[in-house]
Every structure is written in C-alpha cells, then in structure tokens.
Amino acid sequence: MSVRMPSNFGRLGAQESALDLLGHEILAEKAAALGRAGQRVEETLAKLRENGEGEHRNRLLKAAAEAVHGYFIQRELCGLRKHDAVIREYNIPRAVLVRLGAS
C-alpha cells in the first residue's frame, strides 16, 4: 500500500514541513514511551527491593525482568545500544539480569 500526501500539501516545502512535523511527533512518542518504560523499571525494582525476600521473590523477579527487558528494547528502538550506564543507574540486580540472559 502506498501513501500519498493530501492535495493541500502540493508545494514541496509544505510536504517537507508536514513530514518534519510527523517525524517530530514520532520522536516525541518514542521519548514518552521510553520514559514510561523507565518508570515501570523503577516501580518493579522498588517492589523487588521492598518485598524481594520470601515467597513472592520469583514473581517479583519475573516482573522486574520483564520491565527491564521492555526498557532495553525501547532504548534500542531509540538508537541507544549500550545499557551499562542504565544498569548502574537503576542498580539492576544481577538476579534480574541473569533472567535476561546476561552474565
């Protein structure tokens, strides 16, 4: 399926302007999604630290690993490939990273 610009964007400058607006909106949504994913990581890691001992540990580890995995994917979609600084900043436990396949 091909997409065609509306006829009211007939001038080349207007087309470029419309594409710039779309690109800007896409970047804003990527940034917002990254922020939401980071917030979820913070929340799940806080729950893990507060209640991480005992019978709920496996459930909390799984939730934290899923949140971290989603955050890493969102970072990579934004072009951020290295996660070392994020791991240190969020103080992501080794038990969570092991569930992601990191050693």
Rank of each mutant, 00 (worst) to 15 (best):
M1G: 15
S2T: 08
V3T: 10
R4E: 14
P6C: 08
S7I: 08
N8C: 00
N8I: 03
F9A: 07
R11S: 13
R11V: 00
L12E: 08
L12T: 06
G13S: 14
A14V: 01
A14Q: 11
Q15M: 15
E16M: 12
E16N: 08
S17G: 14
L19Y: 05
L19K: 06
L19Q: 12
L22N: 00
G23Q: 12
G23A: 06
L27T: 12
K30Q: 15
A32N: 08
A33F: 05
L34C: 13
L34N: 15
G35Y: 01
G35M: 09
R36L: 11
R36S: 15
A37G: 05
Q39M: 05
Q39N: 08
R40H: 02
R40V: 07
V41W: 02
E42N: 13
E42A: 11
E43N: 11
E43P: 02
T44N: 10
A46Y: 02
L48R: 01
N51C: 11
N51R: 14
E53Y: 08
E53S: 06
E55Q: 12
H56Q: 15
R57K: 15
N58K: 09
L60C: 10
A63D: 10
A64N: 12
A65F: 02
E66K: 08
A67T: 08
Y71R: 13
F72S: 02
F72H: 09
F72T: 06
R75L: 09
L77F: 03
L77Y: 11
C78Y: 00
G79R: 00
G79P: 03
G79N: 05
L80R: 03
R81G: 06
K82P: 02
D84Y: 03
A85Q: 10
A85H: 09
Y90W: 05
Y90V: 06
I92D: 12
I92A: 02
P93Q: 07
P93K: 02
R94D: 14
V96A: 08
V96P: 07
V96D: 05
V96W: 08
L97P: 13
V98N: 04
R99G: 13
G101S: 02
G101H: 00
S103H: 06
